[in-house]
Design a protein around this nucleic acid. Structure first.
Length: 435
RNA sequence: UCCUGGCUAGCUCAACGGUAGAGCAACCGGCUGUUAACCGGUGGGUUACAGGUUCGAAUCCUGUGCCAGGAGCCA
């Protein structure tokens, strides 16, 4: 890639090169011809820019080469940068040189509309479109913001294993694999290991993929999804909730500040996001049950919320809302019972606005040895596999809390996309593992 | 696993018991400011698959497969 002697720049840098001759590298997003004038929309990953090749202006060999362009042909395009209000993006290139790096023919994804199945079968190409690029950039920035928030507050990244010897929570279905003749499972949560980490380092977190072999098939479900799981020693439920609302607020701010263009591409009205700031509304499970019954989505005390209940609750607020003090029976075995009301536990879920469902689940953990052993027995969990976990209550146990944030659901809410499959590069869905 | 809807050209769809079509894409031609450009032309089909009803089935019936979004479960 050294045929041009002009400085190579990216589309995102064009604003600082107005009037200069530059060289761009990228792919043809679209090509239009009006006979003696041709327009080449080039994309390079940082943005889109229009190249113009007009008869009498551009060299004849450029006009010849441009005539043969097809969608997604890779090119090097040289030319002078100029401002032009007619051009998408505000700048255009008066093309003086055009070199084919590699031709593309019969590119499947045209500029017309496509169906879900077709796009999912071509996910490896779908991610080249502006909307999908924006979502991937937002995802990357969201991860960076969440990690910066925790790193800045003394949290240590401690990676939990992905291959595990036993169910973490013992409830959901796990993917089983062979570990040199032993049974092993793909992790459904890194939390238990974070509890060990937090008792070593104080405040820790893990961030990685988790796997649920459930036959869930809705716009909120992925088989493989990414979860951020902080865990904190000497921290109770209340303090954990405060950290959660600060973290979510920080992340939303960062996206608004740094990725405004992507929200524009997605046509996301950001006014709802501007309002996000602590404190988030909090209601108890008891209040939530009363609320949904009043709203005509009936349920009994003691049941867990279904998706319609979560939507009914979140509709009442224009911020994410905490629902806390769930009945112990609907939560994981390690949730600490409320000393004042032992049939409920010190747990809290954060429900996103606009019907996106639960984006955080968390709580204070059982720190008492006898209670934990009793719970493990009640849940018919294999005691041997949890021996190390129980050990944590044997050697210097302290009150501790943590939570798990689902990255894709959080992004689906922030970006306001209607299905989590667009918030992860290559989604693993029920009966879909290609590409 | 269950419920509901769908499957017709490369893509998005129409035709709803009587000769399978359109737009886009591809190919050929035209156009000096296009914005998913536009205009003219050409090629393109085992109507998901297997049976059945009928003089005649893309269309009606049965079964199978696949896709979608919802339930349950969850982040």
């Amino acid at each position: 890639m050294s045929s041009s002697r002009l400085p190579t720049v990216t589309v995102s840098e064009l604003g600082t090169h107005v009037g200069e001759a530059v060289s761009l590298r990228g792919w043809v997003y679209n090509h239009r011809s009006s006979g003696k004038i041709q327009f080449i929309i080039l994309r390079d990953g940082t943005g889109f820019v229009q190249g113009v090749a007009a008869a009498g202006e551009a060299p004849d060999e450029v006009l010849e080469t441009a005539r043969t362009l097809t969608l997604e042909t890779a090119v090097r395009m040289d030319g002078k940068v100029r401002r032009d209000s007619r051009a998408p993006g505000g700048y255009e290139i008066a093309v003086t040189g055009l070199e084919i790096v590699s031709r593309s023919s019969d590119y499947p994804i045209t500029l017309k509309e496509h169906g879900v199945e077709f796009l999912m079968d071509h996910r490896h190409l779908w991610i080249r479109t502006p909307r999908q690029q924006s979502l991937l950039r937002l995802r990357a920035e969201l991860v960076r913001a969440l990690r910066d928030f925790l790193d800045d507050r003394g949290f240590v990244l401690v990676d939990s294993p992905i291959l595990t010897p036993a169910a973490c929570e013992g409830t959901t279905t796990l993917f089983q694999t062979d570990y040199f003749g032993e049974r092993a499972y793909l992790s459904q949560s890194g939390q238990l290991y974070q509890e060990a980490a937090a008792l070593a380092l104080g405040r820790t977190y893990c961030f990685g993929p988790t796997f649920r072999a459930e036959k869930s098939k809705t716009r909120r479900h992925l088989i493989e999804f990414w979860m951020l799981e902080p865990e904190m020693a000497f921290v109770d439920l209340e303090e954990s909730m405060r950290l959660q609302e600060e973290m979510v607020t920080y992340a939303v701010r960062r996206l608004l500040e740094r990725r405004a263009d992507d929200f524009k591409t997605l046509k996301r009205d950001t006014s709802a996001l501007e309002r996000v700031k602590p404190p988030f509304p909090r209601i108890t499970y008891d209040e939530a049950v009363e609320l949904v019954n009043r709203k005509g989505v009936p349920m009994e005390w003691g049941e867990d919320f279904g998706a319609p209940h979560e939507t009914a609750i979140s509709e009442e607020f224009d911020l994410p809302v905490f629902v806390h003090h769930y009945p112990s029976a609907v939560k994981a075995f390690y949730m600490k019972p409320d000393p004042d009301r032992p049939e409920t536990c010190l747990s809290a879920d954060l429900l996103a606005p606009e019907g996106y469902g639960e984006i955080i689940g968390g709580g204070q953990r059982i720190d008492d040895l006898e209670t934990l052993e009793k719970r493990i027995a009640e849940h018919d969990l294999p005691a041997e596999a949890y021996r190390w976990y129980v050990d944590l209550r044997r050697y210097g146990s302290v009150p501790h809390s943590g939570f798990g944030l689902g990255l894709e659901r959080t992004l689906a809410w922030v970006a306001k996309v209607d299905h989590v499959r667009e918030t992860i590069p290559f989604p693993r869905l029920l009966h879909r593992i290609y590409p």
